[in-house]
Design a protein around this nucleic acid. Structure first.
Lengths: 124, 124
DNA sequence: AAGTTAAGATTACACCTGTAATCATTTTTT
DNA sequence: AAAAAATGATTACAGGTGTAATCTTAACTT
């Protein structure tokens, strides 16, 4: 699995919003939430390319970046990894921890029920 | 939140199995799964103490370590953090990602149902 | 009591990370 | 055409991380 740092992920996430995109578009998107210097983002883009998380094409003097994988694919792998490390691969204990500490809303419960419902329909 | 590295967490996890415990007990417990040098584990114990994740008492020339927090408390915080970063704080999309990629077993589903059930009983 | 261990403390060192600044080069402006 | 600006490339640098080796000292052996 490609290992991304927090900051790298945030840059990739800004690209996932819509791609392909240029560095300046990505910088623009990130400008609201983060106070990163433009140079910082460029560095992170370079590291993402080096790690194989992004590819790019040249367009004049600019690069046009595209993610090498989908967000869902990446977050699934990260999730599996996380659940393996902290909960021996079982997902229920994670949810249960949230429930016990009153972190679940009725909406979360409804959404979870729907996921279970869909899963069961899928099975039959 | 105390930030622990992967390796640090694994050492703490070995202590959570049963504590208080000495360094050599922890080293013994880890010897099956990891091929870490004893010195490596000592280093990690030191870093855990420095980060405030462990406390210790002296007993002759040994230290007897105790975690400063419970496992459930730590994993809950890590989980919240994780879900915030990757799923904007919503838990269902994580579970849904697992479902879509066929990572859920009937047992997982049963466990999840039970969590939901318990939550609902709690509410009324 | 002297020598040997074994515990923790200190030091090591390369790679990763956050966070840019500077350099080189190519476009734009003027 | 010369100057200015904007791009990506290279360099920087401190703190974290994995993975120990070496140093110091207190405790156990003989």
């Amino acid at each position: 699995m490609i290992e991304l740092s927090k900051a790298e992920f945030e840059v990739l996430d800004a690209l996932w919003l819509s791609y392909p995109a240029t560095a300046s578009q990505i910088i623009e998107r990130l400008s609201d939430e983060k106070q990163w210097h433009e140079k910082t983002i460029k560095t992170l883009l370079g590291r993402l390319v080096k790690k194989g998380a992004l590819s790019f094409e040249k367009d004049g003097r600019q690069y046009i970046y595209t993610p090498c994988m989908e967000r869902a694919e990446y977050t699934l792998k990260e999730s599996q990894n996380f659940i393996e490390r902290f909960f021996s691969g079982r997902i229920a204990p994670l949810v249960s921890g949230f429930a016990k500490s009153e972190q679940l809303s009725q909406q979360d419960i409804n959404e979870l029920k729907k996921v279970i419902d869909d899963w069961e329909k899928q099975q039959k």
